[in-house]
Design a binder for these strands. Structure first.
Lengths: 125, 125
DNA sequence: CTGGCACCTGGAGTGTGCTCCAGGTCAAGA
DNA sequence: TCTTGACCTGGAGCACACTCCAGGTGCCAG
């Protein structure tokens, strides 16, 4: 079973060393193993969880809600229904985020076109 | 020519009164008119600009960059080429944002499906 | 003439999510 | 043996974008 150093995990997940420690401190990442010298050694499972965190973070989930999700995971299999509910609600939120982004992007593109039209008008005679 | 009170503008644009004042203070919103009593009176132009701000903000543009854009607008028509450049760069960013969001959303949906599959396995005998 | 409301100002405070720092441990290579 | 580099801890600090507050003005309805 492979283990990873903090540096490797940082590299793989894109989280800084400080962020990894921060996530552990606040309980978003529980029970990271240590070697004899007290240094962290991450498992595949930890990395997988961090990749999940990455997805949730990048889609705008606040840390407080990720903590709720982490708590559900910690409580075991009987919370799977709740986890589905939480993720589906978040998925809907992401859908709306994208829709809003598209709408705003349309307005911005419209503005760009407006500027291009202004520039196309012959200046002077 | 229509003018609007702070309350009306807040209502229309979704920015709080404090945010409107804040934007004016930092120079994102220049030269808002006043009535005899010193109260703000916004023009159609102001509201239009705020709607632009809304688009840029909602698509993740930091205030510092909106200030750069505002400065270009203030400098007059010879900066239109720069404005197009700025907005097109931002538009590309939005495109990438959406792409990332979609990728992450895919992973989340995958996780939801995994949970659903787990639940579908008959428990016990 | 008295509320009550919308607004004003300058400045302080807040929430989120990290990020940095000082001072220390440990292991490996020159 | 010495140095370098990755890592450790607890706690302070920071960037961003607001948000709140105290104390005050102006105007209109009752």
């Amino acid at each position: 079973m492979a283990v990873f150093t903090p540096g490797q995990v940082s590299e793989e997940t894109g989280f800084s060393l400080d962020t990894l420690r921060y996530y552990e401190r606040i309980g978003l990442l529980g029970n990271v193993g240590r070697n004899a010298a007290g240094q962290r050694r991450f498992t595949d499972g930890d990395v997988g969880w961090l990749n999940m965190i990455r997805c949730l973070r990048d889609t705008g989930m606040p840390i407080a809600e990720m903590l709720r999700f982490a708590e559900l995971v910690r409580q075991g299999d009987h919370t799977i229904r709740d986890r589905i509910e939480l993720l589906e609600a978040h998925d809907d939120g992401v859908e709306q985020q994208i829709a809003t982004l598209r709408r705003r992007q349309g307005a911005i593109q419209h503005k760009i076109q407006y500027y291009k039209d202004v520039m196309a008008i012959p200046q002077g005679v």
